[in-house]
Design a protein around this nucleic acid. Structure first.
Lengths: 121, 121
DNA sequence: CCGGCGTATCGACAAGCATCGAAGCAAGGA
DNA sequence: TCCTTGCTTCGATGCTTGTCGATACGCCGG
């Protein structure tokens, strides 16, 4: 939580931020790296979480209040549960501003996934 | 299962093969697209499956016999079970050649994920 | 044709997970 | 100070899934 001003989509910024693992095609994954990657993928392996993540990532400013994205067909506690999972997986960050809680896409995340997939251009 | 000749790493080939969904940042995911994407991620959300996938993707020729990758710390039926899951998710294809069964990375898969993550360069 | 080897399927079990309603906590307005 | 609104946590429940041993299937050599 070092930046609070998000000008554009935070996704794909960050450039060299690769906090995870070597490319998946570079050789056998170590059990430890496999565990970390699996955690990331598992967080995205639920349709509801994916829709929440997508809503936040595509929201103006790259952030959204819970009340803006809560309409995904499940109860509000369930939404909160999924957001917590995404936060614990390092995919989102959250910040309380007055009455509302805003969630942002963690900047380095998608870049890390890109590195995983060996997309060096 | 239409191709049997794999010359190089199938990963990242295919170019324009995008059989899945719009980029995750392009707007809200439809429930149907979210379901499809979640299926892909779910298949990669297990450490054992990730290691199997990595072993195949990094194997010379982009394919591997089950016997070459089966050493991931679980029993042989479990390996078979995971390979089936990856195949059902469309991430791998399999082919029997004599006694052995060879698994290959489905060419379009990683390109599709790249598109998802909006990595158009 | 038969025995051995490589894989796949089956059935069972334990652990994990998505979901809900109810209750709790935080912030702001009357 | 109370009440309302936004969000999180709690406890329970039913479904999914990772794992195994046992078994079945497919292919080849003798």
């Amino acid at each position: 939580m070092s930046k609070s001003e998000v000008v554009e989509l935070p996704v794909l910024q960050g450039g060299d931020a690769v906090p995870c693992c070597p490319p998946i095609t570079a050789g056998e994954l170590s059990p430890a790296d496999a565990e970390k990657m699996a955690g990331m993928f598992k967080a995205l392996s639920d349709p509801v979480r994916l829709r929440l993540f997508s809503k936040i990532a595509s929201h103006p400013g790259g952030e959204a209040c819970v009340c803006d994205i809560a309409d995904v067909g499940v109860s509000q506690p369930t939404v909160s549960h999924h957001l917590k999972k995404l936060r614990e997986a390092g995919l989102l960050t959250s910040e309380r501003r007055g009455t509302w809680v805003y969630y942002q896409v963690a900047p380095s995340v998608v870049a890390a996934m890109a590195a995983l997939l060996d997309l060096r251009g």
